[in-house]
């Protein structure tokens, strides 16, 4: 089981400090949730951890190895995958082709020019196993652009899982998913618990309290509290900065 160490990470967009000296360890096998109001800098933090954005200062280490300078693809190969708050799929590929491509990235060379990839059983079978877990089996041959929003969110998660990560960064996996569909999604995430280390960004408090072992609160780019879910929930500073606001604005 892998560990993610974030040390003194900082990032500014012009005058706006979006990541303010963040230090945090995601312990092996834990689900660590990060909550915080809109614009707190959660997505920007995930972007820096995944290698999409360069931090101004600080380091990121996977199992003690400094990965701060690795590109996004290299981090994925090292076992660090992410999902996106705004779904990123290959719209004209079928669901199966999307996932099979994620499998292909870690199975052999992609500098193969002659053999047809569509009939590679090793890729398709591994992809189907991931789809089974996502409830997308029936939709395997549908182009990704034809999926509903909820199905898109499942495919987004399936793509990250298909890379076989040891540490998974989830940026609001439940974004836009509601009601019974959200419950099913939480069950799906719960089933993944213990199989990999997870950093979970989520607005849905029910989901956070159902899944997280520990919770950190991010406000204006800085972590103001970390602890067990119940402790964080009752922390007066947190209530003032975040949870109170949430009650006033239940929309998000």
């Amino acid at each position: 089981m892998s560990r993610l160490d974030i040390l003194n990470l900082s990032k500014s967009f012009g005058a706006l400090q979006v990541t303010d000296n963040v230090t945090l360890t995601v312990e092996p096998g834990e689900v660590h949730a990060i909550i915080g109001p809109n614009g707190a800098g959660k997505t920007t933090l995930v972007a820096q951890l995944s290698g999409q954005l360069k931090p101004d200062a600080g380091t990121v280490a996977l199992d003690g190895r400094d990965i701060t300078r690795l590109s996004m693809p290299d981090r994925v190969r090292a076992g660090l995958a992410r999902s996106f708050q705004i779904t990123q799929v290959l719209p004209s590929f079928t669901v199966l082709e999307n996932v099979a491509l994620a499998v292909q990235a870690r199975k052999g060379s992609s500098f193969r020019f002659f053999a047809p990839v569509a009939t590679e059983a090793a890729l398709n079978d591994a992809a189907m196993r991931v789809l089974d877990g996502s409830g997308l089996t029936e939709r395997a041959d549908v182009p990704a652009r034809a999926l509903s929003h909820g199905e898109h969110r499942h495919l987004e998660l399936a793509l990250a899982l298909a890379t076989d990560p040891r540490v998974l960064l989830l940026d609001e996996p439940l974004a836009g998913v509601g009601g019974a569909e959200a419950d099913a999604f939480v069950d799906r995430l719960r089933a993944m618990k213990g199989r990999m280390t997870m950093l979970l960004i989520e607005h849905d408090m029910d989901a956070v309290f159902a899944l997280a072992d520990r919770v950190s609160v991010l406000v204006n780019g800085a972590i103001i509290a970390t602890g067990a879910p119940e402790d964080v929930r009752s922390d007066p500073q947190v209530r003032a900065a975040y949870l109170g606001e949430e009650e006033e604005a239940p929309a998000c």
């Binding site: 693809p73 994925v76 290959l90 491509l101 992609s110 590679e120």
Partner: peptide
């Protein structure tokens, strides 16, 4: 043959969404 190969699928994937391709491990 090339467009239907592993390489072709990666190339087409990059056309469709380069960010997604990077995030599943393709530079």
């Amino acid at each position: 043959r090339i467009v239907a190969s592993r390489f072709g699928r990666v190339l087409t994937g990059i056309r469709e969404n380069p960010t997604r391709m990077e995030s599943i491990g393709f530079p």
